[in-house]
Design a protein around this nucleic acid. Sequence first.
DNA 1: CTTATTCATGAATTTATTTCATGATAATCA
DNA 2: TGATTATCATGAAATAAATTCATGAATAAG
Lengths: 307, 307
Amino acid sequence: MLTLKHLRSIEAIHETGSITRAASRLYLTQSALSHQMVGLETYYNVMLYERTRPLRLTPAGERLLELAREVAPRMEACERDLQRMSERRQPGRLRIAVECHTCYDWLMPAMDAYRSHWPEVEMDLVGGFHADPVSLLADDRADLVIVSEPGRAREVSYEPLFRYEMLALMASSHPLAAKSRLEAQDFAQETLITYPAPDRLLDLVRRVLKPAGIHPERRQVELTIAIVQLVASRKGLAALPAWAVAPFLERGYVVARPVTAHGLWSDLFAAVRSEDATRGYVRDFVTTLREQAFMSLPGIESVPESS
Amino acid sequence: MLTLKHLRSIEAIHETGSITRAASRLYLTQSALSHQMVGLETYYNVMLYERTRPLRLTPAGERLLELAREVAPRMEACERDLQRMSERRQPGRLRIAVECHTCYDWLMPAMDAYRSHWPEVEMDLVGGFHADPVSLLADDRADLVIVSEPGRAREVSYEPLFRYEMLALMASSHPLAAKSRLEAQDFAQETLITYPAPDRLLDLVRRVLKPAGIHPERRQVELTIAIVQLVASRKGLAALPAWAVAPFLERGYVVARPVTAHGLWSDLFAAVRSEDATRGYVRDFVTTLREQAFMSLPGIESVPESS
DNA sequence: CTTATTCATGAATTTATTTCATGATAATCA
DNA sequence: TGATTATCATGAAATAAATTCATGAATAAG
């Protein structure tokens, strides 16, 4: 029988163009999703997608996608209403702390989307720099913190959001632009342009350069646009999320290259107090973060289980 | 997770005002439906219906009902479209034969409802009287026959529709009106007014009077309204489906009484060729018959499994 | 007050879903 | 063009979910 689960699957397959990627986004194995689709196809005796790469929906698949788009939001709205009815306490509050500079790019639209679903939830951003932002949860100064690594404290629950690739950025006239990927040694003689943040938060430094014993000259700038401008002016290299550099590549002054053989991928998690993790408005905020990110950020993936 | 099944359940509970009756209409045990509801209630941590008789939906239950009403028809429309896509043969044909006179009362509206879902299916009514209407299927003179008893031939599939109670009808001034229920002997000295049909099709005669060896005087009339008129004029008794007599009871000239201790219940089935039983447009016709009947005929029930 | 009904619940059963392990097929790249 | 890597399909096993059966408790009807 047709379920919401099937509709979500069709949407994910359509959006990712692949059973494997869709499965990962749905937190399923590739096999489970394949079985699920074969089951649907057998039940209705139709093909739902062409077995080509990239995979495309057939007319029958498109029809299901259409259903998903008209039906899924209504079911979700109903679920939110039920959650509201069950939590007869005060409407919730979400004070959000963010560790990474670029996070604001996707956090703001996500908060907007969330506000329309949960108008009664009061949202706030916790400003300032904090050595250990997760401790803001226990101190009751924040209710949700965006971090790049899950901790292991039992009082805090870490919800995976997504992962993105960090790309090395250089002027298109830079000699290193000739290489298809950069390694740690390539940075040795360069200036590294970063946000003003401790090394712990700079994935390139912490996970690539420091382990290789390489400590390039450094320069710190606040704004992404300023970093790109300095790179274009051949003042040094930078490492930024793939989705953040995409708009600048079109103009051709800078180029982006992966770092190390498999690329430098960073994960993001939402940390919440474990007692809050099951609340409807909190879970829905996390879900909204994921949805909005996958909708607007090109090239991101879901966090693999092992992380 | 919320499924279409849950929505159908909520609808059935709302319409029947009882877990037991809803379960029977959904072809489930009472227990299964109870578990299902408790599961939903636990998942969302809300009550869905008041534990009173008759049972009423809570606001949370009403919210689910609202969802059901906006979402279920869309899912059904999509399923029909998929079925159409899978059957790339000729659009179907439905020649329908009917055994019982009163069937036309609910069959016509049901056919209208069905026509809007399957405009490409050509419907026709097979007229005339037939000693063995089910044989019309094998003879390819009909595609679906409404009958009151399932046969056991393997080439024919019998889909249960619903059951209704036959009530004895008499003038309100008739002495028997004093009794709360009638027995076979009560008919011995009366005239029985029936449709012009063989005894085999008259449930009162076949299942009550004949077994008791009672053969009252008879009079045959074509139209339901004429039967009621004769009864009101004290020309005799009649037995008609509860839903067919309901409109005449209001005026007060006739009264209706159950027959025998547990009432005289008649079942209805749709007989189709087994090869047709799985076709989308056929299954949907049967589903539409059930739906429309339960929607418009008061006091009917679903056919118990054993029948 | 007794007798029906009706709903809830625990245990057992059946059915469905998911994963694991692996094979087949198609795309990519030296 | 092979060799290599990606991706999807599939069967068997494991896990999870839904359904039934048997029964108890609560509620309405006679």
